[in-house]
Structures are given as structure tokens and as C-alpha cells.
Design a protein around this nucleic acid. Sequence first.
RNA 1: UGGGGUAUGGCCAAGCGGUAAGGCAUCAGUUUUUGGUACUGACAUUCGGGGGUUCGAAUCCCUCUACCCCAUCCA
Length: 751
Amino acid sequence: MQKSSNESKDFLRSIVEEDLKSGKYNEVHTRFPPEPNGFPHIGHAKSICINFGIANDYNGHCNLRMDDTNPTTEDTQYVEALKDAVEWLGFDWEGNVRYTSDKFNELYNYAIELIKMGKAYVDSASEEEIRENRGTVTEAGKRSKYAERSVEENLDLFERMKKGEFRDGEHILRAKIDMSANNMQMRDPLLYRIRNVEHYRTGDAWHIYPMYDFAHCLTDYMEGITHSLCTLEFENNRAIYDWVLETLGLAEKRPYQYEFARLGINYTVMSKRKLLELVNKGKVNGWDDPRLPTIAGYKRRGYTADSILNFCDGIGIAKANSMVDVAQLEFSIRDDLNTKVPRVMCVLDPLKVTITNYEGSEEIDASYYPHDVPKEGSRALPFSKEIYIERDDFMENPPKGYFRLTPEQSVRLRHAYIITCKEVIKDADGKIIEIKAEYHSNSKSGEDTSEIKVKSAIQWVSAEHAKPVEVRLYDRLFKDEAPEGVEDINPDSLQVIKDALIEPAVITDKPDERFQFERQGYFYADPVDYTDENPVFNKIVGLKDSWGKKKKVAKAKPETKKVQIDGEVVAMSEAEQVLFDKYTTEFKLNSEVANTLARDSKLSSFYEDALSELNSPVALANMVSNEVARELKEKEVNELKFSAKQIAELIKMVDDATISNKIAKQVFEEMLTSGDNPRKIVEAKGLVQISDPAVITPIIDEIIAKNPDNVEKFRAGNTKLLGFFVGQVLKATKGKGNPQVVNELVAEKLK
RNA sequence: UGGGGUAUGGCCAAGCGGUAAGGCAUCAGUUUUUGGUACUGACAUUCGGGGGUUCGAAUCCCUCUACCCCAUCCA
């Protein structure tokens, strides 16, 4: 579904929309291109949502592509996990899964083309030499002595590489770009390496494999991708992406790469390396361990696809590295399950309660859903003399604000009766082992005439009817907000309760696979270990617990104010200093403007040119140091469509009050693109400013009449609204109102 | 240190010269037979710091600072 255009959209969608509108492409085509060398995690989910989501939003297509160019790490079990993840999230890759390995032939031919163009060469230097010759971030690299080989020799060598005549590492194919490029990626990047190993799909057909930088752009191109969306760490690689396509002359409807920030979540790790380590070291039970941020883990834990989708939607897409709070994810799943899932009762830490004045048993018809969830359904809930309640729900010496059962405070058994504690029985160590209580026969849920006021209703199960179940309680895997590695693991991340007690309907009727255990949280029947003999439930997420939170002492966080250090400004050269002095003393420019001008020779010469046309040093300086400077950042003076003389003319009109500063900027924008004379623009658009109060006042009156609320707010002290009114009036005059006059008049009127 | 990026409340995030959106979290209150949910309200005189331009700056200019990425025959 396409978002309405006034809704704010992320920068990627803005780009896509723009490209569609301009006709750059007729249709969007994205791709989700993981390497099948690990299990997908929630960061992949974000990428999946972006790529497939954008394709869906704009009626385009999205390919699922295995970027399988490195035979040593990849495996088919990972491609299955990847396919499963995309499918589970509800996306459709339309047709076959794509593989970069399916394009090995075409890729090889493109490499040959590059060699023939003299743009690629076979380097026979050792790995170490290549690294040394690459230089450092501050020093240029040195081109390999093999770079001068003839096209024929390169072709011959490359073919023999392909045939498997060499050992790993003996030769390598590189692009011939620029060994002194500031962008390290452009220092003759590697294109093909020899790998005498089997590829999980192509077997032993190949002895050479393309590198990411070579394969990715071309595969995108061959698949007809329009927008190649990847994470921030590939920003530097964009230059090669463009170089390969441009060099090969693949300009028509070619894809362009855009980068977004990868997802980080606190209290967990997201890197493949660290995830693999957790699995391999046995810190968790496999890739689908419910504590892991893998898709398989979330799935097994009981997260719904909808909750993941909503989460991804909620966190947005931007370019700032960020760390999302797990609370956001937890909100997504609670929010989703709240309206979907039946409520049942389960006691995790049982405390026996004997109801001394109750005999026999009965079945209560109890709704699965609370009053505010519009779903139907109920179960038979057995009640009897002996029940179990949660140990936490009784306290002999309660703190203030405790709502549950105490010797003095009665409590309701959810869906059943109110009970009152009569006796507390303890063992030799003083541990409470049983409560003797009395029930109030006229207090039954739904037909209560007892008029007893209780502060809460607690969960319980009938001792005789309850079923024992295993419950696995998960907490965050790491105790550190930004964990480094296994040393930060939370030792209590998994707690297994072997003998929890659950009401029978859950086991016998199986009304669902996800439940809310009332007052505790959401739970999921473990898809792997659950059997009728040994039911197992995973805790998905706890309910919000404002009581538990209240009990915790709020720890004071040390308020550390960040100290801003001011760095040293580079000193001016002598010539710059001379200019600066001249500007400040002779022309009376303020030091900031003088500084900007003096330090930039393009600006200062432009300024002086303009000054020779019009003796208005301050106004010209402001224009040049602010507006012109922006244009001269990336352009040379001769690339500008406007001249210093035209700027002088523009300022002349400001000086003689023909136009306002605001209009001057508007005219300047126009000059930027059209190169027209400012006077001509002003005349053509009728931009002469309106300063006559007689013209402006009625407009102000109208605006004031239209916005009574804001007038009131303004008069109540919200002086920021002055800007609002001035803006409105200016808008009404199409920008021609003299802002100073408008400002004064508005302020006067609003008094 | 060269290059490429990014800075808006505790965490995400809109905003593109005219009243600082929204979500999560937090704190109050109302409803409630879940200390859940729902609802109501509070929560940035200020946008990394400092200057400048402008009637008006988170938005334009200058400058400083912090953080991230790049020197794998990984992707």
C-alpha cells in the first residue's frame, strides 16, 4: 500500500518516489541480497522490510538473491534459513530465488571485457605484497609491477586461472583504477581470486570466484535492479560500484546504490561472527535459541511475524548509527498479542491453599478473553477444595501498597470466589508451605453479592485438575547494554521451571499455541520440544509490571554533562591575513564574514569582482560569504551561471529597497538555474516589494481573523507565534511584503 | 593522520527559512475481577558547541567537537 504523500516517509522512499516521478525508471526493482553464510537476524529483517516493503509500496519487484561468491563459508542450510525468514515475514520473491553463482559465466565475460579494455590486470604479487603496496589511509599505494602486462598475457593468465592451473593465491585479477585514491577501495580493487574448492552450488566447475565489489553491481544490473539498498559500511564501495558499471558502459537503466544504517539493539549482539561464536561455544542451544536475535530464535520464542514487521516499521530508516531499545521490540510483541491471544492461568511457583469450608468441586465457565478484547470463547475451569496460588501472591508481612492475599486482606481468585486467609502453616525452617483459607460462597465471579471489596484478583489452579508443565523463562542474553562478547553474558538468561501447574483446558483443548498466562506474560508452546506428555512453554515476553517496577529502588544515574572542547583554528596565511585586515578595517566587515572571505580565494576574488561593480561592501560580503559560498563549495567560478556583476546588481536592488533580503534570496535561487539577469527576474515575476502599510494592514487583519486560536495563544504569552503570523502574511503577499514592515505591523496589531 | 558518513528529549525519528510531528520509555490520573489493556494529561524556550547572515535559523554560511566506516584474496 502506498503511503499518502503528506505522511512523512523515509529518505529511501523519497528517492524512489522521485525517480519514478522523473521517469528515471518505470518500475522499482529492489533485492534482498544476503550471503548464505549464517542465520538471518533481526537486522536482516529490517533489510527485508526495506527492500520488499519498498517494492510492495510502489508496485515493483524485489528479488531474493543469495550473494554466494565465497565458496569457503557458504552453505545450503543457510539459504534455507534465509528463504524461511523472508517467507515467514510474509514476503514473496516472485519466482525463483536468485543466485550470484548463476551469473558466474556472465561475470567472467565482463571480467574479460575489462581486461581487453586495459582496465583490469592479473597481479601475481603475494597477498602480503599487495597489502603493503596498498599504502595507508594517509599514504598513497604503489602499483604492482605486474600491472603493465599486455592484454594478451592477462587474458591468457586469467583463462588459466579459470582452468585451475594455479594454486590459491598465485594470481589475482585486479581493476586498474588509482593506487593513490583517497578512497582505499579504489586502490586497484581485487576482482577475482583463485579458490580451488567446491562451491555448494556450482561444485568444481570454477576455480576462480568473483569478489563482492565486482559481482554485486553487475548482478544488480543483470537482474534489472533499480535501487540497490545496503548498509552504511558500503558507502566507500559505492565508488567501485559506479566505476564497474560506467567502465563497462552499462549506463542504460543502471542501478544506483543507497545506504542506510544497520540495526542495533541493546543487550544483544548482531554480528555474524559473535552470533556464530555463541552457537559454536555452546553458550546458547543452536541458531534458534529463543534468546538469540535470529529470526529462527524469535520464531521459536513465539514472536509473531506481525510484531517483527511492526517493529521494523516503528524504528524508521535513516543514516545515523543507532541503538534501538529492546523495550521497543517488546512493545511490538505485547501490542500484537494483546488483542489476539487467549488468557489462561498458570502457576509458576505454587503455594498450596486449602479452602476449609469448601467441599467437592465444580466447573466454572471462564472466558478466554478479557472484556476489552472483542473475541469469543471460553473454557471449563475446575475449582475444588485444594488449589495452588503463586507464592508471590501471599505475604505475611506485606509492604504498603500490596494488593494481594495477606492475613488481613482478602483476595479474589480470578473467575471464582473471594477467599480470606485463616491460617499460615510453616515448616521447621519457617518457610510457608500452606495457607488455610475460607471462601465466601456468595462471592462467585459474575454473581457476587458479598459486597466484599478486594484489591486484586490472582491466578490459581485446582490441585486435583492442574497439569504439570515445563516453562522456560528467558531474560536478556547479555547483562551489558552494549555487550562486547561472551564475557558479558547474563548467567540468568534462561530459567527452566520443570513443575509449573497449568489449568487443564490449555493442554486438553489446545485453543491456541500462544497464550497470555494471566498477570505474567505471553507464552508459546515450544514448537520443538512440546509433547502431550511433556508440554513445554516458552516465555515470549512479560506483561508490563508497574508493581514490580515500583519495588525496585530507582538508582540515581550520575548526570555527566558533556564537556565541549574547542579545537584550535588553523592560522591564516600571511596573504589571507592581509585580506582579513583590509576587510575588517577598510570595509568594516564583521570578523566572521571577513574570515570566511579571506580564507577562501575563490570567494574573495568573487567578492572583489562584485565590489568593483558596486560600492556596497557589507551587503555584498554577506551575500557572497553566505549564498555564493554554498555554490562555490562544489563548483568553480566558471561553472556558475551567474556573475559577480549580476550579484552586484542584485544587491543594488536590495540597497535601494526595491526588493527585500528575502526576495533577493528568491531571485538568487532563480539566477542559479536560469542565469538570468536579476532585474529581469524581478520584473518578470513582479517581485517589487510592498512596503505600504495601507496595502499590508488589511492582509494582516484577514490573517488575524482566520487564526483566533493562535491570536489567543500569542496574547497568552506564546510570542513564538509572531513568526507564524509574519510567515502567513508574507505568504499571502507571495513573499513580496516587506518583512520588516510586516513584522512591525503584526506586532502592533497583536498587542 | 587522508577520504567517506552521522549528530534533534532516556531510546528511535519527522522536520528542508515562519507554532520543535509521531512511536517507545518514564511520571501522574481515570476505567478495570489481569498491578495487563484502553483512555487522559505531563515530558526539548530548544536541535553536538561557538560565531555569522536574516524581521525570523534545527533548517543557509563559517568554525570547532564527538562518534561510525575504509588499509580481508569477507560481504
